[in-house]
Design a protein around this nucleic acid. Structure first.
Lengths: 336, 336
DNA sequence: AAGATTCTCCAAAACGTTTTGGGAGTCAAG
DNA sequence: CTTGACTCCCAAAACGTTTTGGAGAATCTT
């Protein structure tokens, strides 16, 4: 309700003094400072955010772009992550705005709007592509940002990512150790870094074991994509006995395909993301997930450090992937 | 990069004219308007958001508060809803900021911070309680807001809600028509409007049918809460043969309880929310969901109309609840 | 030809902060 | 008495827009 001028007037002080008193500067006597603070408390004074932002040349805002394709938004914990991130940003006086991408615009347009209108101090990018134009743009503008997922950008940039390569390699080797020899991969769209990374992990393991890498099918990172890709692999003359799937959603689609095919329930399968519903599929879906707790806080911390100017190299977190042992990966190797 | 002053200087025009040209006022000649627009396009001029907000006395922001208790954030479609809402708000020049509530603060504190700092033009409230202090506060401040869920506030306020009363009444009657007589209710915390509303619906149906309303147990709106509440009902001397659960999460907990009890798999059950994982439980969980598509757009529209000053009475949407027929509600009435 | 009207444009005043660059006092030291 | 240091305060200048209230020139009316 009240602004600085009114508050100052009612106290018989100058705007300057009131402002500095509230900010705790030392050049205001302790007595006045206390008097000002009490008065401010009493009238419930809060500085006008827009005015402060204008003067300070800070937006006090961070934006996160949300891909609008339904189902592309990421696992359910995504909202928890955002919530955690926003909470930690708020402690530093920053708010998190969500910026969904309308169908008619590109993610780049959104970035441009936010950056060039000086609406944000930093950005959070999700679902990075190997070659991500948003990253290039933000780098060229010199605006701080953190990505959820790596890219193949030449310049380093801050990110948090799971080590999909290692995770999928390990999962594949696990199948190999269990006696599987025909291990298929259901891959996500390869322009996404995570999908490519996971595919590489599977491929590396296969090559290490001296196995052919032709049992690979790509699909949209959705239930339907996994379903179609699985059908494709099941049509092969020599079927896979195990499937490593890029995401849980695809794995669930693959499970549906397996149910429709003779002996499909004898095929092992593993996904990635640890979707809650995976616990209820039949068989319960073994999966993988990124380690680390309170990811949101990590993102917030990286963002704040990026804003503070820390070099990108020090703001990169690669998290190990852990295996979540349910049941779907335990089918015998020799069946099918 | 550029601001109005520089742009004006480079064109040999005044700031005023450039500003008005870009806003399309009629008092700049079509020729100059075009010239200005081209120049602005070329240098990629975007008005500084903070400056505009200060001058216009609008924050161009809407905040949504997220309860921080994990699991309380609502069904997975919640993020889709937010995303849709943000998208439609963006079309009107408003951005959506998410405001999670840290453990040490109340939702009211958050509202206060946003409202008194003039950080937002409106607020979106979720998980309303029957007596909701946030609603009272916002009403007293006269700031526009829309709630997801009704309240028992005396003054009307804009909301979108599902007709839980009718939905739960209908579901209960459906069980009655199928021959069930001992129909239990697993209720959510009654301080929440939705939980109370659904409970009333069950109770009304029971009374209409002349049945006792003692088979009711309350729990936290989580899997564990449903599990414990179900165990409580199953301990009764005469067990329910059907369960109407306030939420799917609770229903899934109840399913776990049923599995642990002899003959539990003969008990019918229905939930509410249409969680994706409900399709994978065994048996697949019959459920209910609010009708209406693109809820986010509806919220955005109500928010905009509230900001425009439309009276609250015209900004209330009560959506019907539809039944989602899977399998879990089809157990015979005479078993158990 | 004088007055009214219309077209274009602009100077200056906001909006509410934060920050710069002092300006009065007071006190102690030189 | 002067000087310097220190304490406490303040006027004024930003920050970049939008909007108000004209001003000057051209065109139309009478």
């Amino acid at each position: 309700m009240a602004n600085l001028k009114q508050l100052a007037q009612s106290l018989g002080l100058s705007i300057t003094t009131v402002s500095r008193a509230l900010d705790g500067y030392a050049d205001v006597s302790a007595a006045t400072r206390e008097r000002v603070r009490e008065a401010a408390d009493k009238v419930g004074y809060r500085p006008n955010a827009s005015a402060r932002r204008l003067r300070r040349q800070r937006a006090e805002l961070v934006a996160v772009t949300l891909p609008s394709d339904p189902g592309h938004i990421g696992p359910p914990h995504f909202l928890d992550m955002l919530s955690g991130c926003a909470e930690h940003l708020a402690a530093a006086g920053l708010n998190l705005v969500i910026a969904p991408v309308p169908r008619c615009e590109s993610e780049l347009d959104i970035c441009r709007r936010f950056v060039d209108g000086r609406r944000v101090d930093a950005m959070l990018l999700v679902r990075t592509k190997r070659k991500d134009e948003r990253v290039e743009f933000l780098q060229s503008r010199g605006i701080p940002f953190v990505t959820n997922g790596r890219t193949e950008s030449l310049l380093p940039h801050p990110y948090i990512d799971g080590d999909g390569f290692a995770g999928f390699r390990a999962a594949t080797l696990r199948f190999h150790a269990a006696g599987h020899r025909r291990i298929g991969h259901i891959a996500g769209p390869q322009e996404y870094y995570f999908a490519h990374d996971r595919c590489r992990g599977w491929r590396a393991a296969m090559e290490e074991c001296g196995l052919a890498t032709d049992l690979c099918a790509e699909g949209a990172p959705l239930e339907q994509g996994g379903y179609l890709a699985a059908l494709e692999l099941l049509r092969q003359p020599s079927r896979p006995t195990a499937l490593v799937c890029a995401t849980d959603e695809m794995a669930i689609g693959a499970l549906r395909a397996l149910r429709e095919v003779d002996g499909g329930n004898q095929i092992s399968i593993v996904g990635h993301d640890d979707l809650p519903m995976g616990a209820f599929t039949s068989p319960p879906l073994s999966t993988m997930r990124m380690t680390g707790e309170n990811l949101g806080a990590s993102f917030a911390s990286l963002l704040l450090r990026a804003i503070a100017g820390e070099p990108a190299e020090e703001l990169q977190e690669l998290h190990a992937i852990e295996f979540v042992d349910r049941d779907s990966h335990r089918r015998p190797a020799k069946a099918a």
